[in-house]
Design a protein around this nucleic acid. Sequence first.
RNA 1: GCCAGGGUAGCUCAGUUGGUUAGAGCGCCAGAUUGUGGAUCUGGAGGUCCCGGGUUCGACCCCCGGCCCUGGUACCA
Length: 491
Amino acid sequence: MESAPPSAEVRPQTLRGFQDLLPRDMFAREWVITRIKQVYERYGFQPLDTPVLESLTTLVGTGGEETNKQLFRLKTPEGEPIAMRFDLTVPFARLIAQYPEHLKLPFRRYHIGPVFRADDPAPGRFRQFTQFDIDAAGSSSVAVDAEMVSAMCEVMRAIGLDNAKSAPGQPQEYLIKINNRKVVDALLQGCGIQELERHKHVLRVVDKLDKIGHEEVRKELGAGRIDASGDRIRGVGLTADVIDQILAFISIVADTREAIVEAISNHLQDSTTKDQALQEMDELAGCLNALGVAQQDAVFDPSLARGLDYYTGPVYEAILPAAKVGSVMGGGRYDGLIGRFSEQSIPAAGVSVGLDRLIAGLTLAGKIQTSVTSVQVLIVSMGAVPTGEVLRLATELRRDGIIAVPYFGEGKPKPRDQFSYANTYDIPIAVILGEDELQKNTVSVKNLRLGERLRREITDNEEYRRRAREAQVVVPREQLLHTVCRMLQQP
RNA sequence: GCCAGGGUAGCUCAGUUGGUUAGAGCGCCAGAUUGUGGAUCUGGAGGUCCCGGGUUCGACCCCCGGCCCUGGUACCA
């Protein structure tokens, strides 16, 4: 006891952009995962897992320049270049191409796991984060996209968000935005913007509409602008006429998805791309109605861009308007990606839930209740009780499904320490096994939360100790389980 | 990447115009109280003052460089 604590030679710390999850975080996470999983399974998605590491050639080039830069690159002991996956979609595409004999199309899977991106950490952005994905391969039907959106809505409801219950005047609890790459293509073609790079630049700028507003977007589409820190932001260099067209287009709002499709139609010049895009949107609207997706839950939003290169059709994104954590789900159709790994071209669509952000958002909104421990019973021993008796008692409780742990702290376990421990972790019940109890073949069972409430107001130390045994009963040993179960059900 | 602000006890932070022994609150440990949690009171442990170099008789403080964190911005599968 006298000796100085050993001096730590290594500072305990997590890597930049990585996070530890303590029990409190894990309980919240498990709660969310369980609920999302139930939705995914109801839609017929099958569980699947793949390694965190992939061959470099599998990953590189799939997500554009930016993701190439963000890869955590490694080498196997044999010297082969490999990297950590930056999403779950590319491994899915690889898998579909690799197991044609096991995965008969159409095939839907769900997959949860950590992904890695070596970019600058920011609020809600980590270098390791968890995605919880659904994807469906082997069908180009828009109905599949509609199912994705429907599943997104149901996930929101499953974790306790409901727009029907949100107070009038308040922002919605969640909102799913839908757009279509082909619609945007038709618009830009109509404006005479052909080059892919310019196309992507326009998308990036348009995506900022919510953040910086119309006027700044107008400047950035034109000559450029000066941002809040005084940085000059390069503009796209479009003419005023074209900018007007684009702004008018992305400002389209209407009450229903059908009305937005019609408004879009009026804004676009005739082309085959336009016809195809509108037909898809029209069909999607019909499917969403058939699936019972409420108009207010999922809206068509022509300003939604999503920066991903591989999307080819409908794109979707979910936000929690009350929590400023960015988008919490995103997805879309990517009919070209699997072709990278396979002779045949296989259409696919999927959604990714950003678990860390979603949980952060729920916590911010107070929609998630977390506990610090799952332990239901702390076994408190007093006096000279043989360890064997304590262990026997623990086994007795565990055999019937009670989460029970005996107190084995350092030093002589004083009652005070043991109760204080239970208090720190908010363990609801103490089962006390002392010499008295052992002799009489009884146990004392104490409802700690009730006891706390009954004595909360006491300021006098004497009285506090005199009433120590409130909320505590002595029962014959054979009634232990019954007593504990009943007490667990009490508030 | 750019702008701004930070890094001092486990946590949140104060402080020193450069001077011997670095402070508070919370938390932790012990006692008041040997079979009972909280509150209260008393005492205690706990520090490479982010790292490296420079200036100085002397640096936690000043100077240079680096790393990390926070906010904003940019970028963003």
